[in-house]
Simulated scan of single mutants.
Amino acid sequence: MANRRRSEGFGFFLPIFGAILIMPPIVHLFDRGGTIFGLPTIFAYLFGVWFFLIASSFALARLLPRDEPEPRAGRSERDRDQ
Rank of each mutant, 00 (worst) to 15 (best):
D81I: 11
G18T: 12
A73M: 06
G18H: 01
D81R: 10
I36A: 06
T41L: 13
M23N: 03
L63W: 15
I36E: 06
I16R: 03
E8S: 03
A59L: 15
L63D: 14
P69I: 06
F37P: 00
M1S: 13
E77D: 12
A59Q: 05
Y45K: 04
P15E: 04
L60M: 07
F37H: 03
R6C: 01
D67R: 11
E70K: 07
F12I: 10
G34R: 02
L53C: 08
G38M: 04
S56C: 13
I54K: 09
A55T: 11
G48Y: 01
I26K: 06
G18I: 05
F43Y: 14
P71S: 06
F30G: 02
S76F: 01
F10R: 15
A44H: 02
A73V: 11
I54G: 00
E68G: 06
P25C: 08
I54S: 05
R72C: 05
E68Q: 09
V49W: 02
E8N: 06
L64H: 09
S56Q: 07
N3K: 14
R78T: 12
I16F: 15
I22S: 03
F17E: 02
I42A: 09
A2W: 00
I26C: 04
P40H: 11
N3C: 01
F10S: 07
R80E: 15
L53G: 00
R72Y: 12
G33E: 03
L46R: 12
P65M: 09
G18C: 09
F10W: 04
R75E: 07
L21M: 15
P71W: 06
A44N: 05
P25D: 07
M23G: 07
A2P: 04
